[in-house]
Design a protein around this nucleic acid. Structure first.
Lengths: 139, 139
DNA sequence: GCCCTTATCGTGAATGACTCAAAACAAGGG
DNA sequence: CCCTTGTTTTGAGTCATTCACGATAAGGGC
């Protein structure tokens, strides 16, 4: 039950602005979208907006924890409305499409590296690479 | 037994050039270095070199499989002389230092996502985030 | 409902990390 | 030793993102 964009923003202590609401709504339709796609989506409802404003919005929403930012190698940053769970991602090496992967094997094993080299580990992030259904079909 | 840079280059079918040898040697001293650091290291032995040349070298070495390129979120690409094993990395969220992590739990479990959304998975990449020994001490 | 403070947006310029292009150069087979 | 072809150099260009700052609007207080 994701609460409405307005409620979410208020709960995060952020002002409710048209830009933020539009971006949050666009991310429901376009999960894992990058700034550019969100900009194009936002323009339909906010013709006067700019790519910088989209970056502003994404930065504040990410900082407040309303969005999760993912940065697959070789691709611009993508954003998703996070559901609090720590799921992972699978990226198509051909077209860049991204899919969600529910936490692997009951989520515990991968959070425990064998040797940490003195590091204090706080999170683990898994990225799977492969071909999406469409690209596998074409191959 | 890492073979010498010269041998490695020849085996990969690449010409042996001063720049390539210098970069490979620098990566022994600076594992997980980025292009900029390697450029500075290379300048000591090749005063006339340029950052673009370093990128050239890194690109061809990566393509030939002599180097592995890693791109942690929020950091420029790092390079390492790969040993063929599929190890993972741990990145310090404070200073950006990177450590190697031997494959987790006998390497199999993390390569098998629970649901693949129709994707054909070929590789899995795990990035651990935390604080390096130095930064944990300072915190 | 209106004002005022202050967060946010929009415009513009700037940055970092890298890629592209073409001329100068050098590795190494013949 | 020469010639071919892969590399390096020099220089410009790109992309995604950030910085700076005046204009604008959200929303608490009156």
């Amino acid at each position: 039950m994701t609460s409405t964009p307005e409620t979410q923003l208020r709960e995060a202590g952020l002002r409710v602005t048209a830009g933020r609401v539009v971006i949050l709504e666009a991310l429901d339709r376009l999960p894992h979208a990058d700034a550019e796609s969100l900009f194009r989506a936002a323009q339909e409802q906010l013709p006067g907006t700019s790519i910088q404003s989209v970056h502003n919005v994404l930065a504040s929403l990410t900082e407040s924890g309303l969005l999760r930012r993912i940065e697959p190698a070789g691709s611009p940053a993508r954003y998703e409305r996070r559901i609090g769970d720590n799921h992972h991602h699978i990226v198509c090496t051909n077209c860049g499409a991204i899919g969600d992967v529910d936490c692997v094997h009951g989520d515990a094993p991968c959070l425990t590296p064998s040797n940490t080299n003195g590091f204090t580990v706080s999170t683990a992030e898994i990225t799977f690479w492969g071909l999406c259904a469409e690209c596998s079909a074409l191959a």
